[in-house]
């Protein structure tokens, strides 16, 4: 497990999401990367129900990743992350009196996985309730464990693949974790950040359409 950067790749007007994904995949294959299967990251949101009065509404996001198939990541709005066995899903079902699943909240990023030397690329198209939302590209550099060390190296790689405009984005989350050892939970936090952005964008769009 190395350091991961998740980038949001904007879909230009007049192009479909699939076209853009194909373009990125072609770019990655041109670099010499090899296809190594599919991947999937999904996120479900649970909301603290009306069981207890006088408490602010709290959310807990449950994320799964095909890269860590035996684990389940539970992240609170505050950023606190709990990494548990996949059985944690069953526990959440037991708690449904308190935590209720928000309907239609399941959002996932799915796509191809590539390997190139010590790098892993994942090109995922994000969909919520079978609606296409956007594209997330994940770049992982496996030998390094400290994000701060390989930030410039990652930037160079993303620049050559995705263009400098995309490479400029840096997760606010990663900025705070430059010296610590990177964990899979950090990847999940990045995904959650992007998923929340997608959801926000949708609600803004809906608001504007009204």
């Amino acid at each position: 497990m190395g350091v991961v950067c998740v980038y949001f790749y904007p879909v230009p007007e007049g192009k479909s999401g699939q076209q853009v994904v194909d373009g990125i995949q072609k770019q990655i294959e041109l670099l010499g990367a090899v296809k190594t299967g599919n991947f999937c990251v999904d996120c479900e949101t649970f909301q603290a129900g009306s069981g207890i009065q006088n408490t602010p509404q709290r959310q807990v996001n449950i994320l799964h990743s095909s890269e860590q198939p035996a684990s389940c990541f539970a992240i609170l709005d505050t950023g606190t992350c709990l990494v548990a066995d996949a059985l944690f899903d069953g526990l959440m079902q037991k708690l449904k009196h308190y935590y209720q699943q928000r309907k239609g909240s399941k959002i996932e990023s799915k796509g191809q996985r590539y390997e190139y030397g010590d790098f892993i690329f994942k090109v995922g198209s994000v969909s919520q309730a079978s609606n296409f939302k956007g594209i997330l590209v994940e770049i992982e550099y496996c030998p390094c464990v400290v994000a701060g060390d390989c930030m410039n190296l990652m930037k160079e790689m993303s620049q050559s693949l995705l263009g400098s405009a995309v490479a400029e984005q840096q997760s606010s989350f990663l900025k705070t974790k430059t010296d610590m050892i990177y964990t899979p939970a950090d990847t999940m936090s990045q995904y959650l950040e992007h998923f929340n952005n997608f959801k926000k964008a949708t609600s803004v769009n809906q608001a504007m359409n009204r």
Partner: peptide
């Protein structure tokens, strides 16, 4: 110790064939 954080002194790049 600066394996991943120092660019090449010749070409100024970080990566060459996917290697630092």
């Amino acid at each position: 110790s600066t394996l991943f954080s120092t660019p090449c002194q010749k070409c100024g790049q970080f990566l060459q064939n996917g290697l630092p």
